[in-house]
Every structure is written in C-alpha cells, then in structure tokens.
Design a protein around this nucleic acid. Structure first.
Lengths: 207, 207
DNA sequence: CGTAGCTTGCTACTCATCGTTACAAAGTCC
DNA sequence: GGACTTTGTAACGATGAGTAGCAAGCTACG
C-alpha cells in the first residue's frame, strides 16, 4: 500500500493533469493528446506519457487519451475515486461563492454542511444547503465523519475554528483566510494564496 | 538579466516563504527561524537557508530572520517590489470576496478596477471601488496599462473576456472559472483549482 | 564575565528526478 | 496504400534536492 506510494512530483503532476482533463471535459472535448496537455500544464509531453504509461496503457496511438476514462484512471491511481464529504465554514461572499460553484463537486467533493455564526445567515439556503449554526458542528462531525474542512472565515477566528476541527477529527484543512494555522503534525493545512501564485507568475514574466 | 534568472524551484520556494512570512507578520511575529518556516512550508530547513544565503546574509545567528526585512529582500529578489495594478472581472460573490479581502493588497497588488455587466451591480461600491461596466475596460486598460487580470466570471464567458484581455495587452490572467483558456504563448494563464489541491493532499493522507 | 544553547552560513557528497533524444508500434486520414 | 500523428519505452546526462557535518556568531542566564 504505502510502499508503492507515488513520489511528490508524480502525484502533483497527475493532479495537474486531472485539472486540465476536467476542464477539457467541461468544454465538450472527448479526447486529448499528451502534446495538448503539455501546452496547458507546461509539463513535457514525454514526461506526461511516462507518468501515465507507468500505470497502464491508457492512450491510443495516433489519437491520444480518452478524457473520461483517463480521469477515472488517474483518480484510481490517486485512490481518490468516489465522493468525499467536506464541511464549509463561513457563509460570507467567499463561502457562498464556493458553495454555489461546482469546483469541488466536479472532483468528487460534496459539501455536506455549511456553517456560520451570524443569525442573519443561519437558516438561509445556499443552493441545496441550509446554513447551520456553528454550534452544531461537533455533533454533525461526529455523525458524518467529516475529514476535510474548508475555512472561509475571517483570519482572527480561523485558528479557533481550526482547533475545533482538529478536535473533531478533521485531517485536512483548506484555509482561505490569511491566518497562519498551528495544527498537530498529522493534520494537513493547505492555505490558498492566489497573490503569491501571482507573484510567481509575475517574476517569470518580468525576467 | 535573464541570465541570473532563478530556477523554477527556487522561485517557487521563495514565493512560498513569502506567503508564510506575510502570514506570520499579520500574526504579530517579528522574527522567524528556518526551522519554523520549514514546519509551515514542508521545505527542508537547510534548503531554506541555502536558498536565502545565496543572495546575501539576511539572518542573525542564534536568532533567525527578521520578518519585515526578509519579506523585502525576497520581493527584491523576485523583482516584484512595489505595487502592481490588477483588474478584476466579475462582481458576483467571488469577485466581491476578492475585492474586499486583503490577500492581493498584502502582496503589492492593487485592484485598480472591477468590472461587471449586470446593470444591478454596475455603479455599486465594493470597498473603495465602484463597479464599472465591462464596456469601459478597453479604454481604462489603454490608459492605465493593466498587466494582470483576474477572472471571477462564469465559465461560459471566460474565454471571451480572456480574448479581450489579450487584445488589451494583459500578460497574466488569473482564472477562477472552470474554463480551459486558450491564449497566445506570451500570455500566462494561472487557473485556481482548490479541489485538485485538495485531492493531492488527500492522496498523501490516505497513503 | 563566561558558559551553554541556538541558529545561520557553508561545504561535500549522494541520490532521485527531469529533460532530451531516439525509435518502433499502432492508429487515423486522405 | 501511404503519409502523418501519437503513444509507449529506453538510455543518457544534467540538474536539483536531501543529508550530514561543522565553524562562527548571537542570546540568555547565571
């Protein structure tokens, strides 16, 4: 199991392919070549074929890869097939944007609950979901076994929420706030930082 | 100039350090050790010191790095000091969330204009900015020299907006939509894909 | 003042990874 | 049938990253 664990690089690239494939599928494409994936990801076409061919023969020579089946294969390789329940914290502009978009749903993440503390928001609906009060989180987490939490809350309360998430057994925290979160070593924090990604892109443009 | 260009890895890590440093500064810290940066970034402490010491002696032995000055130094290394004007497209939930947060501002990106097409939104204020009609973009871009565009628009119009941005001379597009954008090779598209980043984190947790 | 404990800066070495080149096999298109 | 495309695969070389180790400089505390 853990022995044939993918290396960081391979897993990162496979995820990246998955992103492009999912987008391409949304655009109505059904087939794609390693060359095309390369243009969208910046990864060398040979590298792409090598990454994929290490797990089986997914492509058709002269044609390329069938997008639907390749998505399925990669998700199988990443062992992330099926749906995963996530909980969303904060129903402000950002939280509502996340809840009403399909970004997570397209990749098998189902938002199973959305929490806030504002009396004006609690009880309102966002898509199919009703915003619940944050106090109900512990109970719901215990019942549904939430493993991933998404933080769309103000930075000054992020650590507090993160602590509660850790206590409830959440293992992966996606942090949209600007707070630096301290968590036990068995919990992964991923912080969204679009501005930093932009700086990175800007550097290469300016050079 | 381009000769002493940083490698991809170094630039990526420096950006990452910048993220953590900016967060740490917000939390009120003034100094940080390579060990601490390592815990937040996952990068080896020796690697961090090597990355930094290649450009000068920024740290104090026995103490660590002064956060303010290190941020300044890294931004100088990345040649992204100063402020950069960006334009934001789409004033829905996501657009408003971006406009009212400080994520971009903290890193020197100033949102100089926000555009939408909805008559209900145009004319309203988000923070200090007034939402303008999309038709005004070409003129404003010509006057202010926008180099970075942020797309918080629906996927089905993203390509159309991207084409207009390219025509107006925008070189970096930050894409929050789920569309796969086609642009000339001298334009960089960076697509936000939180779900894919989550899949990546999930893989390593499950292994 | 002086000693103990950090932390940086720096070097040398090793190993893994990625890009490159090359080419055969299998498919499509005309 | 023939030209063209694209995958699958191997070999090689260059680059990058992890590791270990150590001296120098700073702080803190008696």
């Amino acid at each position: 199991m853990a022995s044939d664990r993918l290396t960081l690089g391979v897993a990162a690239r496979l995820s990246r392919y998955l992103q492009v494939l999912t987008q391409a599928r949304k655009m109505g494409k059904t087939s794609i070549s390693s060359q095309a994936i390369s243009e969208y990801t910046g990864v060398n076409p040979t590298q792409i074929r090598r990454d994929l061919s290490g797990f089986g023969k997914f492509g058709k020579r002269g044609v390329g890869y069938d997008i639907d089946s390749l998505i399925e294969q990669i998700r199988k390789i990443l062992r992330t097939s099926g749906t995963h329940n996530i909980a969303l914290f904060g129903a402000g502009n950002l939280g509502q944007a996340i809840a009403s978009s399909s970004v997570f749903g397209d990749h098998g993440f189902q938002i199973s609950a959305i929490f806030d503390v504002s009396p004006e928001r609690v009880g309102q609906k966002v898509g199919d979901l009703t915003i619940r009060h944050y106090d109900a989180f512990a109970e719901i987490a215990a019942r549904e076994g939430i493993m991933v939490g998404v933080l769309a809350v103000p930075g000054d309360v992020a650590q507090h929420v993160a602590d509660d998430l850790v206590a409830a057994g959440v293992k992966i925290i996606f942090n949209y706030s600007d707070a630096l979160l301290s968590v036990p070593s068995d919990v992964t924090v991923h912080t969204s930082s679009p501005a930093v990604e932009l700086l990175y892109a800007l550097y290469f443009y300016l050079s």
